[in-house]
Structures are given as C-alpha cells and as structure tokens.
Amino acid sequence: MPIADRVAVRLRVNGEEMAVMVAPYKTLLEVLREDLGLTGTKHGCELGECSTCGVLVDGRPYLSCLAMPLDLEGREITTVEGMAHGSDPDPLQVAFAELGAAQCGYCTPAMLLTARALLDRDPHPTRDAIKEALSGVLCRCTGYLKIFEAVELAASRGRRHG
C-alpha cells in the first residue's frame, strides 16, 4: 500500500474552518507553520520537552510538536494569532507587555496561551496554581517572576468581554 503524499484534513483554527492537503506524517506544529502560515507557534525541542510549541485544543494546553492533525478534526485549535480580538489584545498580552514579561519572546506565545487556559478555568489563581500551570513551559530569559506577575495583573483586571 503506497503511502499517501497528501491527505485532506479539516481543521478549525482560531474559529475559522480550514481545509488543507497535508502529508499524513506532519505534526500540528509543521502544519500550522508550514501549511497554514501561522508562525506565531514556535518550535523548540520538537520532542515534548519545552512546551514552546504550545497551543490550545478545546481550551486545554497541547503540544503541537507531538499532536497529529488528523486526530484533531472537529476540535477547536487556538494559536497565539487567535488571542487578540481584532485590534483589541488579550489582557494577558497587555500585562506581559507592561511588565516586561517577554524578553526574547520565544516562549511567549505558549506562555500566553497556557496562562489563558488557566484563567479561563480559574479566574483568580494563586501564585502556586500559576506556577503549576506554567511549569511545563521553559523560559530561558525572564526567570519567570515577571511572567507570574503579569498573569496576576491580568487576572486582577478580569476578562475584557465579561
């Protein structure tokens, strides 16, 4: 049985239905970056060991470097490009910018999305809950403190659309 060069897959990314032809052995990370042009999702280790490729699937943090797109049909995928509402950034994005919680910025998309998932579940998390939720996302620059503070600041301001 010859291996298919490309197969059709229907993905729902940032609220938009997309039909793409992709190689069946491509991970979600490769499809997002290479086939859909969504390069906000970063690639680090590509082995599950850094979470910098993190996206949300049905609102839960997922590693796109390990996820297989063909299993995600019908699921809701959110990337950092889907966080802002038009020109209105997510409160987390505002807080990260205000407090300098991004330095090189490489881990930032995954940090933002992972923190978003946390705040959606628990709008006023403790410092420990923030640490636990973000524990999988490695940051080489910030020492994490400013990131924790930015999440707390965003939480204190609440969600923009109620």
Binding site: I3, A4, A23, P24, Y25, K26, H43, E46
Partner: peptide
C-alpha cells in the same frame, strides 16, 4: 525541524 518518517496515518 525534527520530523516523523514518511508513514501512513490510519484512523479506525
């Protein structure tokens, strides 16, 4: 990119 080898993906 570290990629998977060419393979089929079957969904029973």
């Amino acid at each position: 990119m570290l990629r998977l080898p060419r393979l089929d993906y079957l969904r029973p």
